[in-house]
Every structure is written in structure tokens, then in C-alpha cells.
Write a protein that binds this DNA or RNA. Sequence first.
DNA 1: AACGACCCCAACCGCCGTTAA
DNA 2: GTTAACGGCGGTTGGGGTCGT
Length: 305
Amino acid sequence: MEMDALWMSPCGGISLPSSAAGVGEDEAAELRRGPWTAEEDALLAGYVAAHGEGRWNELALAAGLRRTGKSCRLRWLNYLRPGVRRGGFTPREQLLILDLHSRWGNRWSKIAAQLPGRTDNEVKNYWRTRVQKHAKQLGCDVGSGRFHDAMRNLWMPRLLERIHADESAAAAADASRYYSSASPAHAPCSQPACQNAAAPIISNCARATSPDAASCVTGSPSSWEASPAAQFQTSSPTMAAWSTEQCQNGCSSASSGDMFDESWSELLARANHDDADSAGLPDFGLGGSGDSLWSLDDIWQQPFY
DNA sequence: AACGACCCCAACCGCCGTTAA
DNA sequence: GTTAACGGCGGTTGGGGTCGT
């Protein structure tokens, strides 16, 4: 679809505040806004490839782009830059986002820096659209301790289960190829970082802080203290080190999708119908509490990936 | 098929810190 | 030392797509 016409003002141009960075009145009168066209992308990418990043206002003028330097920078960083990964977040990435956000808050650029190929904008959008949606379902605020601890004790362990399942499947596939080809190159990864990839996160899972965390889901304030997550205390590599290495190794191959959906539906189903411990999960006391904070009917309607 | 509600994400906005003139 | 320009960051918005009725 040709976007050019859509974003031109009726007068053939758009008006921007004259304070638009680095441009004069004449230039500002001709500046374009809105979605980028393929031609603009090509212009920008070509110019950056030839001259490098930085000095965005200058670059915009020199490249002949009728865009602000800011707009060029954003387009480059979020879309055109080599290595930018698109598509759904993998379980690993989701787990990292949860963990890092719990530590750093809305420091999107800092969090994105730990996710190779991901931009702060993507992380921010993920948080706002997915995570906040589920917080709303819970009746919690995402900034509340209750929501915080629900993440640590419910979703993060489930993400780890998912990751381990994916890795087991991948390892099995590798082993299968190994035995059929007898090639040492296909031996399972023996690097400590691979084996301990999940441990640093689990250790954080065990650090729930809010006394009423469990009450968010159970009304049983201390049940999470005995969570099996505590057994994962570790001195493994730091999260930052893990994130870069592991994401580069595993992010691109893992499946995508919203792990929260799976966590909600499966965890709650188990908690209500089975003994949580026997299912390998912490006992959050969900069964029979009748805690109206959970909207089970709604949650069970979530799609299962 | 039509319509409205909701979701997702690209892009913009405003603020702030840094830098250079 | 001052100030304007710039880059970076987090918050917000608008529009296209999807889903449900």
C-alpha cells in the first residue's frame, strides 16, 4: 500500500512546531510524519551504511529525508538496524523481561540491552500489552507487590518449565541426529552456562518480598516460602551474562507466544483440580480457597499455546 | 456480511541530560 | 558560565488488524 498520500496534509505537507530539532521553518513545513515508506527506508539504510550512525539531523538533511533527525534515529534503531529481531518473545526473553523489570522497573532501554536484537520499544510494548493485561485480569496493579510476587511464584517457574521442555526437546533432537550421524559436533551442550541457564532466574523467583503476595492468589501468605523455587539458589553466572549468551544461542529457535496465557490457564487448572505439589509446582493454596481475586472462568478462556 | 470492541505496535511527544559553541 | 542543539529515554497515541457478536 502506498503510504505517501495518506500522510501528506491536504496542503501537500505537514506542519510541525518550529522547535523541531535541527530544522528551520522552511524544512519544518515540509517534514513528513507517520509510517515510513520503503523508499525512505532504503534512503536511510543506504545513507547509514555509507556514512555511519549519529548526527541524525544532519543525516536526515544529507540523505534527503524529509524527516526529523529524531524520527530517523528511531526508525533506524527500532526497525532498520541490522540484527533487529522481530516477532513474538520467546519464553527465555519473557522470563528475562519479567526478572529484569522486577529489578529495574520501567528501564526499558536497560532491559532491552540484555535482549540481543530487541528494542526498548518492543519490550515496552510487550509489557504494556501483555503483562498489564494480565495484571488487570488479576485485579492487581502491575506495580503492586502482589502482582510482583505472582509473577515470581507462578509465571517465572512456568516459563522455566517451558524453557526446559524446549531444551529437552532440542537436546533429544540433537541426540537423535548425533546417534544417527555419529558426529561429535552434535553432542549436547556441556557448557556450564547452558546447564545453569535457568538457575539465576529461579534464585530471583525465590526472593518474593511482599507478605501478601500469596494472598493475591491464595490468601495463604506464607505458602510461597516453601516454594521449590528456593532450592534453586545458585552461584551461577550473572543474569546479564546469561542473557546475552543464552539468548544468542536459544532465542531464535524457541517458540513464541504469550507465556502468561499458558501460565494462567494451566497453573490455575492444576491448582484447582489437582494437588499442586504432585504436579511439580509450588503449593499456592489455590484449591478451594474461593478467593475472588482470581477470575478463573476468564483465565481459563485464555488461548493455550 | 456488517459492525463494534479490542489488541498490537509503529511512531510521535515531551522531558531530561549531555555536549559544543 | 550560558544557552541552544542534540541524543536518549519513557510515556502516550493512532490506526490497522483481528475477533466476537
